[in-house]
Every structure is written in C-alpha cells, then in structure tokens.
C-alpha cells in the first residue's frame, strides 16, 4: 500500500473509532435539550426539534440537583485536600526519612494492594455504625483520607528529590516540618496535582460505598441521586440525560484541563509492580 493510501485508511479508522467513543456523550448532550418524550420515538431523533432547557430547570427546581452537585463537590474537595496532605506526608517519609520498621511496613503495604477494597466494606459499615458515623460525610471522607496507592505514588516521586537539598536545610537548623513545607511540598507539586486529580475523580465517581453509607437523601452525591432518579423516572429519558450531563461535565472539564497530570499518574501507577 502506498503511504498516502495507508494514511487515508489510518485516519478513516481513527475517525470511526472516535465517532464510536464520543457518540454516546454527544447524544447524551443532545437529548438533554429535547422536550419530554421526544427521544422515545422511532426512528430515534439525533437532534432536538426545538432545543429547551426545561429538563435542567426541572432538575434544579423540583429534583434538588443543585444540592447533590454541592454535596459531590464538597465531598470530593474535602477528600482530595485531606488525602493530599496525609499521603504526601507519608509518601515523603517513606522515601526520604529513615525510621524503624520502614522497609517491612513498605512491603506489607505493597502486598496489601492486591486486596480488593470490597473485602473491607462490610466490617467497615459495622465500624461506622459503632462510631455513629453512618449517614454522615465523615463516613465517606475519613476512610478515603489516606490510601496505599497515593502513598506509593508520592513516594516514587519523592525519591527523586536530592538528599543534599534536605541535608543542607537540616544543617541550617530547619525543623523537619519546615523542610517539608518549604522544600518538599514545592518539589512534589507536579505529583500532588496528579494525585489530586486522581482522588477528586475517584471520589466524584465513587458509587458503592456512598450508596451503602449515606441513607439521607439530603446527603446524596450526584451518582447516587442519578441512580435513584433513574429507577423512579425510567420513562423520563430526556430528564435523565440532563442529569447525566451535569454529573459527567465537571469531571470531564477537570480532566481536559489537567490531562497531562492525570496521564502521568496512570503511567506511574502502572509501573509500580
């Protein structure tokens, strides 16, 4: 095959694949602007006959989706901030500070990566009940405040900080806390952005645990609210699409603006073995 022939074929394949991956998302957007019942027709329409914001108005007006949006945002933000703090402290300690039992601890953590989190879920619920935290945000945030993956991600990156830098600061009499805030944190910035994006997306998209532990409707996150709504409003196709758009859009925007950092996280995560 000639080079130009190959190029045409290649781009045809690429465009076809992109059409398949993007179509559901674009269709979701389009249907969210349709009038109630419009999409349940044959043949299925691709574009709204008369674009309308009625679905969004109903979601914010009657379905209280603003509340869920705020819940999701504050939960994800809180989880991200706290886990960045705890994971960076620990990741740095495991990379650069020598303390007793460091190496065996590291091995235990690494081995524990293979345990699926669902194993812990049932007793975790009983524990939350015992602590009186069921149906509070703390039940969602506290267990997510530190994670093995996060600690390792930071550790890998922190290994690249030159020891001389830290030693020099120690000789100058800086406290360990001071060294951490003024030297280590700035050096870790790129990986913290990566971890932050990961944690935020993970927390935003999380489903099973919040589903179990949050019973009060006022505390629902967007995915839980959407799953609940979609069981009640099976027939309201257009309304559900508007809800899906509101759920997906914030994370998609975050990803698009911080794509570089996110992909670095994937690559670092995949070489951990």
């Amino acid at each position: 095959m000639s080079v130009s022939g190959a190029r045409v074929l290649l781009h045809a394949l690429l465009l076809g694949a992109a059409a398949i991956t993007l179509f559901p998302l674009l269709w979701m957007l389009s249907v969210s602007f349709m009038a109630g019942g419009e999409a349940s027709a044959f043949p299925p329409p691709l574009l709204p006959a008369h674009g309308t914001l009625a679905n969004y108005r109903q979601l914010f007006g009657q379905q209280n989706i603003g509340r869920y949006l705020t819940n999701s945002l504050s939960l994800a933000a809180m989880t991200t901030l706290l886990s960045l703090l705890l994971n960076s402290l620990a990741g740095y300690a495991f990379a650069k500070l020598h303390f007793r039992a460091r190496e065996p601890l590291l091995r235990v953590l690494l081995a524990a990566l293979v345990i699926p989190s669902q194993v812990a879920m049932l007793p975790l619920f009983l524990m939350m009940k015992w602590l009186g935290l069921v149906n509070t945000y703390a039940a969602v945030v506290v267990p997510a405040m530190a994670g093995i993956f996060g600690v390792f991600l930071v550790r890998q990156y922190a290994l690249t900080i030159p020891d001389e830098l830290l030693e020099a600061a120690r000789i100058d009499g800086a406290s360990e806390l001071r060294i951490f805030t003024s030297i280590v944190l700035p050096a870790l910035r790129p990986i913290l952005v990566t971890l932050g994006v990961f944690t935020f997306l993970g927390s935003w998209n999380d489903f099973m645990w919040p589903l179990i532990v949050l019973t009060d409707q006022g505390l629902y996150t967007l995915p839980i609210a959407l799953a609940t709504l979609s069981r009640e409003h099976v027939q309201d196709n257009e309304l559900m699409m508007a809800g899906a758009v509101l759920t997906v859009l914030p994370v998609l925007a975050l990803f698009l603006s911080l794509q570089r950092y996110y992909i670095r996280g994937i690559l670092m995560g995949s070489v951990k073995g």
């Binding site: 809180m78 706290l82 935290l133 149906n135 509070t136 945030v141 806390l177 009060d216």
Partner: peptide, 23 residues
Amino acid sequence: SPRPPWLLTVLLPLLCAVGCGSP
C-alpha cells in the same frame, strides 16, 4: 514528636460534617 498543629484545623470541617449529618 512535633505534631503539625494545622492538622486540627483541617480536621475541623470534618467534625462539622459529622455533626451536620443529623438534625
């Protein structure tokens, strides 16, 4: 060891979250 005092500041919103859960 020196305990970072700002840890408490960060944990405060959490305590609120615990309390805010029930009327």
